[in-house]
Simulated assay, not measured.
Amino acid sequence: MSTSLDDNARVQRLSSELLGAMAYGELSAFGRLSFDSRYAPTLHDRAVLAKIAVGAYGNFAMISSRLSEMGLDAEEAMLPFQRSFDHFHERTRPADWFESVMKAYVIDTVSSDFYRMVASFLDAGTQLFVQKVASADQATEVLRILLRRALADDPRLSSRLALWGRRLVGEALTQAQRVGMEHPDLGPLLKAGGDARAAVRALTAELAERHGRRMSGLGLTA
């Protein structure tokens, strides 16, 4: 009985940490995308990025409601992640519109992969919720289209955006490692009683592989 209770408490703690990270990630995305939309070369592009920002805020509101249903305060759930997330974004400020779109695409896809991988070790209800919020959606495809169009219009962007993409994913994977080590329950392989560092390494290796396939799809070197 006590083991079952301990397991339930652990799953509850992991769910709250995962949703706290997701909530702050979406809130950060809203602010970042709203600001970066001002770099857009056309009003249409500006409106497109602003719409994606609104979608990020909608996700934040949905996650906050979920946390409330769990009897948790959204702000308290987000606070443990605020500092590291903010530092990440300070280190990866885009220089122009093209870098803004690449950053939005990389962060959106890598973070979604991370959240879905962790959620696979949680209860079915949480898995479905995370899949709904973090699955590839219209915003992901819009960002991909913007990148393809930019690369087609100016092939000279390829080397610069490939380099920027490598830097972004390197920083993102470092961030995932940091989150995994600072919040051990978010290292999903630990469920099997494995070593924390090995679990995080395996997790980031899979994230890197998936990112590489997406960059190849854009014609860029990961």
Rank of each mutant, 00 (worst) to 15 (best):
79 L>F: 05
79 L>C: 11
80 P>T: 14
81 F>K: 10
81 F>W: 08
84 S>N: 08
89 H>T: 07
89 H>Y: 13
89 H>N: 10
91 R>M: 09
92 T>R: 01
93 R>W: 02
94 P>W: 00
94 P>M: 10
95 A>P: 05
96 D>M: 04
97 W>F: 07
97 W>A: 04
98 F>S: 13
99 E>H: 02
100 S>R: 01
100 S>V: 14
101 V>Y: 00
102 M>W: 00
102 M>K: 01
103 K>S: 07
104 A>K: 00
105 Y>W: 03
105 Y>D: 04
106 V>G: 03
108 D>T: 09
109 T>L: 07
110 V>F: 00
114 F>P: 02
114 F>E: 07
115 Y>T: 03
116 R>I: 09
116 R>V: 08
118 V>Q: 05
119 A>E: 02
119 A>R: 02
122 L>M: 06
122 L>P: 03
125 G>R: 05
125 G>P: 05
126 T>H: 02
127 Q>N: 11
127 Q>A: 12
128 L>G: 07
129 F>W: 07
131 Q>E: 14
131 Q>C: 13
132 K>G: 15
135 S>W: 03
136 A>G: 12
137 D>W: 01
137 D>T: 08
137 D>Q: 08
138 Q>Y: 04
139 A>C: 12
142 V>K: 11
142 V>S: 13
145 I>G: 12
149 R>S: 14
151 L>N: 03
152 A>R: 14
